[in-house]
Nucleic acid binder design. Structure first.
Lengths: 131, 131
DNA sequence: TATAAGCGTGGAGTGCGCTCCATGGTCAAT
DNA sequence: ATTGACCATGGAGCGCACTCCACGCTTATA
């Protein structure tokens, strides 16, 4: 498929797609050579790849990190060992982030309780929830 | 305290502190007037405020959002009603983010299982984990 | 009093992640 | 053959969150 259809399916602006291609995050096929079709051609897997990038961004990765991660992933594509390591690394970082959020959540909920109960004793201290 | 001591206690570079002041996120006292001390003076609560900013950033808020949130918070400082609303809003957004992370985590763990078990059946699909 | 450390201001620069635009090539339909 | 939609490239610009620098003033210490 051509870039505009791909962009629609991926839910991203065309410019962003091109930006990702320039960064090496997406690698559409090229059909130039002879002189007929100088357009970039996208496969259905590329849509999945684009979705994956968006997901990874939501998880707090920069495009640079995503590129590195995905390249490592590709490098070990035929080694389950390596793939498992990469996935485990992602899971680990994700869990760290979740823990930070849990701490923040606990703090906010603690504060809510404190206010609701008429503020007895000292206010919950942020420091007590940080690790 | 003066800015450098404050920066040390807050765990942020002096330049960043000044940047936050310029943005209205921090409001140190001013002791100029007569002509003696033209320096910004920070109170211990300001350290807490700075930590709070860092926390909010970790939770994915932009400085603009943090400013708005904190101002609303201050505006309703003497209304428990309002304070509770603001905190609940933060909790809600936080839980949304957590859910997104849980979905990602489930996807990654699913993939791990699939690889470990010798890849029977189709690979876990990202779409099945998105909401 | 000289000097050095610290402070404030203004402005430029940086890296990231886009976003927009001008130019020009390609292609399908008329 | 012309039109119009789509494509590619290169480069400029933008908002965010800093970061760095030059300048000049203030204050503590020698």
């Amino acid at each position: 498929m051509l870039i505009s259809e791909f962009a629609r399916k991926a839910g991203l602006p065309v410019d962003t797609i091109r930006f990702y291609i320039a960064k090496g995050l997406l690698k559409p096929d090229r059909a130039l050579k002879g002189g007929s079709n100088p357009y970039q051609l996208f496969k259905p897997e590329d849509v999945t790849a684009a979705r994956m990038i968006k997901l990874q961004q939501k998880l707090g990765y920069t495009l640079g990190e995503i590129l590195a991660l995905n390249e490592e992933y590709r490098a070990g594509e035929h080694s389950s060992e390596r793939t498992i390591e990469v996935i485990q690394l992602q899971i680990e970082r994700l869990q760290h982030r979740k823990e930070a959020m849990d701490a923040a959540l606990a703090f906010l909920l603690g504060k809510l309780d404190w206010i609701r109960s008429g503020k007895p004793g000292p206010a919950p201290r942020l420091e007590d929830y940080e690790r």
